[in-house]
Design a protein around this nucleic acid. Sequence first.
DNA 1: CTCGGACCCTGATGGC
DNA 2: TGCCATCAGGGTCCGA
Length: 282
Amino acid sequence: MPELPEVEVVRRGLAEHVTDKTITAVRVHHPRAVRRHEAGPADLTARLLDSTITGTGRRGKYLWLTLSDQNALVVHLGMSGQMLLGEVPNENHLRIAALLDDGTTLSFVDQRTFGGWMLADLVDVDGTDVPAPVAHIARDPLDPLFDRGAVVNVLRRKHSEIKRQLLDQTVVSGIGNIYADESLWRAKINGARLASGISKAKLAQLLDAAAEVMTDALGQGGTSFDSLYVNVNGESGYFDRSLDAYGREGEPCRRCGAIMRRDKFMNRSSFYCPRCQPRPRV
DNA sequence: CTCGGACCCTGATGGC
DNA sequence: TGCCATCAGGGTCCGA
């Protein structure tokens, strides 16, 4: 699902509604939702009980709630995860529920069960505290300490398709299939090109485009094609109306009018303009 | 070490 | 109607 803008929308909602609340009960409805918490469901629920939420954090597509006992509840939404306050539209997909001391319930709903919760300690990585399971995740383009030049240098050494590298969360985080295609379209680069064959200036332009498109999306509450991608109140964003590449196969390029194409690589759909973003010759 | 592909899930959709 | 294949915005793991 959710890429950086959608996750940030959720984080902001949580920051507003659950900060300073205390967890009074937790129930795990599906064990798969806590499989990344190695100590098991009972440990997770026991340790969450009576914890107070002191703040929120996010890096890339990971978000977390910092807790009064100096650790963090790390949440990854996977492909279909939701953090909901209030109505749960489909109880079949309810994976975890936490009751807060103001009477509200924080629900983790996840159709495909790729997401989950885990408790972790905070560790210092390059001067920033992040939960241990997030330590390997690179800074995202909206991080004030994002080092664009350093990422460009990493990309220049990658003999691999640029789109694959944009999706590699250890290189740059927060970008998923939609915003990768949007960034590549804005920078006029075909995703099948080798990262190492793209100039430094062009790579810098690509990373700027990624920051820009995700900022734009955030301003519109994120991208939602359906009710799977919603904020903590169950509301959809509307950036899907502003997409220039993703999902536009057969439609004219908004820049040059050529018919947009869809290719598959990495077992995923990639949408691009064949004129603005010519495929590399093999 | 790097890279590419398989795999993990549920549900919606379209073709036969 | 049923059945099968394909698809979906995630990450991880394993073999080459």
